[in-house]
Design a protein around this nucleic acid. Structure first.
Length: 614
RNA sequence: GGGGCAAUGGUGUAAUUGGUAGCACGACAGAUUCUGAUUCUGUUAGUUGGGGUUCGAGUCCCUGUUGCCCUACCA
């Protein structure tokens, strides 16, 4: 199985919060019980556990699917069982090969490794068909010739029981014949269906003679035009699970009402079957269990609405870094490990919870803090001239400063960044009329340049519009590397409150930085007006064209060897110090051809928070 | 109106199955810090209402309340 997943998946919580080790969520407890009872094999054999991720290839995977993948895959890993990837491709009207490809890529990226080949429900169509005929012969299914409207009408509603179809008790031979001709394509779409004969008065609407097959005269992306009938979800899903030997068929809460049907179909197939009869043995009966889907704030996961975002141009595509799709968060710079930690952290329950988006951001920060190499990058450059640079050596000299690659990982070592007489600092790090608690650069003030020298601002140069265009500063050669200068004659050590980032003007490279923020400003996009578009964040993307990064920013082999910057998906991610976490985007800047970096998430900023309060 | 499911600090989640309601995130306060980051310490705040059983109830019983799901030839 996977070598990227944690050894024990599931509801991992940081150590120390449990009385006796790890607590187990309700699905783990259920599986534990079944294993003890020997429901799936020899009592105590944990390796019998088999789970699956069963996407329909009709769209892109989103962050909600990550929860399902991580649950199913995690369970298989934990028990030493198997995890399968299977496409539930039973509807040729919605499904396409491109989605198959993108989903495979996304599941792989999430770190889930499946057993054997990718499976397809469509590979089992022949078997489904045989079992359907079996049900007809047992008098448990029939071909109905009512129109869709009539069927709906006859189904009744929650208060009124339905009424039986006039075709319900037609002879078995007649249904068998019609069913075969439906399969061959003799009838138009919608003219006939195969229905299970259950109970038109059931309080559970799913049991009111559910449709098993409908006629769809349309080629399927994998089976071509072999079939003119296609199985419905309820009929197909349990059979897919059964064929694959799935023990735990895990799905979301809205399928709770479908479980009786899931069980009914398998029981119906098994009716009259005998374990001793090699030609007519009962089929495997998996356990369906429902859990609450992931439900983060500030995002939407409705396929229809995501599609609308793309088609109306509110984002640039399915992999726009603001999209909650797996492709989107990948491009945003999120890590599969961070996403997995988030999924495990929120637990597995049947409670319809709401998950703070900031929890996901924290999980990403947490992962990236440990693993991302540090770099210096100035988003909005403000020129700083060191006026006394020539007084302490050659005016054109460059001093190479040691900079730490990752304070969280000593082994990541240091790199050298060039320091010279002309620098750029962040415009936001200078204020002419600074509030008292502003620790950065101000007129007459002194500040530390990270890994560099301490500088003091003596003069503010403005252009004709009054905008600050340059700062004239002096540096203290005794603060090389950022260290405090030696004590003065009275033994007092000079201190500086702030440390800011910078680049050397002659060395820095121009890059484009895309600052992404949440796509929506509302916790529940569309809640107020019904339309999420109304809650779009107008500032979800800010493109910074003239950013400057230190010259040798690429991740080095040395760093990778230490574990810092070693990302399994090959995406280069960094912490731009004091700014946030960024990743390299495949795009190059349209304007300049420069490298593009995407901001995954900012650093926590207690200064911004305090400033907002005032 | 019928059926199914659920409910523990602001949020999410535990509680050895009847025995001290704990953890994480957040918020707040402080310490450390060459990133206003990280790290560390402390504070904060909870069993959906009402009855009952019990020496003892988040847990069992009764009864309300609230939320989600269900009337596609989608999944």
């Amino acid at each position: 199985m996977s070598d990227t997943a944690p050894p024990t998946a599931g509801n991992q919580t940081p150590a120390g919060d449990k009385k006796d080790g790890e607590s187990r969520h309700f699905i783990q407890q259920l599986i534990d019980r079944h294993i003890a009872e020997g429901r799936w094999g020899a009592p105590g054999d944990r390796s019998v556990v088999r789970t699956r991720f069963p996407p329909e290839p009709n769209g892109f995977l989103h962050i909600g699917h990550a929860k399902s993948i991580s649950l199913n895959h995690g369970l298989a890993v934990e028990y030493g069982g198997k995890f399968l990837l299977r496409f539930d491709d039973t509807n040729p009207e919605a499904e396409e090969q491109v989605f198959v490809d993108s989903i495979i890529r996304d599941v792989e990226w999430m770190g889930a490794r499946w057993e054997g080949d990718v499976r397809f429900a469509s590979d089992y169509f022949e078997q489904f068909y045989e079992w359907a005929r079996d049900l007809i012969r047992k008098g448990l299914a029939y071909v109905d010739e009512q129109t869709p409207d009539e069927i709906r009408e006859m189904r009744g509603d929650a208060t009124k029981p339905g009424t039986n179809s006039p075709y319900r008790d037609r002879p078995v031979e007649e249904s068998l014949d019609l069913f075969e001709r439906m399969k061959k394509g003799e009838f138009p779409n919608g003219s006939k269906v195969l229905r299970a004969k259950i109970d038109m008065a059931s309080p559970n609407m799913n049991l009111r003679d559910p449709v098993m097959y409908r006629i769809v005269n349309k080629p399927h992306h994998r089976t071509g035009s072999t079939w003119h009938i296609y199985p419905m979800y309820d009929w197909a899903h349990g059979l897919e699970d059964s064929i694959e030997g799935i023990t735990n068929s895990i799905c979301t809460l809205e399928f709770e009402n479908h479980r009786p049907l899931y069980d009914w179909f398998i029981d119906a197939i098994n009716q009259d079957r005998d374990p001793l009869n090699v030609d007519y043995r009962p089929i495997h009966h998996p356990q369906q269990t429902e859990f609450a889907r992931l439900n983060p704030t500030y995002i939407i996961t409705s396929k229809r609405k995501l599609k609308q975002l793309v088609e109306e141009g509110h984002v640039e595509g399915w992999d726009d870094p603001r999209m909650p799709t797996i492709a989107g968060v990948r491009r945003r710079g999120y890590t599969p490990e961070g996403i997995r930690n988030f999924c495990n952290g929120i637990g597995t329950t049947k409670f319809n919870a709401s998950h703070d988006y900031s929890l996901l951001e924290n999980a990403i920060r947490d992962d990236l803090n440990k693993r991302a190499p540090r770099r210096l990058c100035v988003l909005r450059p403000l020129k700083v001239t060191i006026t006394n640079w020539a007084e302490h050596g050659d005016a054109d000299r460059v001093e190479w400063m040691d900079a730490g690659n990752n304070p969280e990982n000593e082994a990541a070592g240091t790199r050298q960044v060039p320091f010279s007489g002309t620098l750029f600092i962040e415009r936001d790090d200078f204020m002419e009329d600074a509030p008292r608690k502003f620790f950065r650069l101000k007129p007459g003030g002194e500040v530390r340049l990270r890994y560099g020298f301490w500088i003091t601002c003596h003069e503010v140069v403005k252009d004709e519009t009054g905008e600050v265009v340059e700062l004239k500063c002096t540096y203290d050669p005794q603060t090389r590397g950022g260290d405090s200068p030696p004590p003065d004659a009275d033994g007092n050590v000079r201190k500086v409150k702030g440390t800011i980032h910078w680049v050397s003007a002659a060395h820095a490279k121009a890059v484009e930085v895309r600052l992404y923020d949440r796509l929506f400003t509302a916790e529940r996009p569309g809640k107020a007006t019904g339309n999420p578009i109304d809650d779009l964040n107008p500032e979800s993307l800010e493109i910074v064209g003239g950013a400057l990064i230190e010259p040798d920013w690429e991740t080095t082999e040395g760093e990778r060897a230490s574990g810092t910057g070693a990302f399994g998906d090959g995406i280069e991610r960094f912490q731009f110090e004091r700014l946030g976490y960024f990743c390299v985007d495949a795009d190059a800047s349209e304007a300049s051809g420069a490298m593009v970096f995407n901001r995954a998430v900012t650093l926590k900023d207690s200064w911004a928070k305090a400033a907002k309060k005032d």
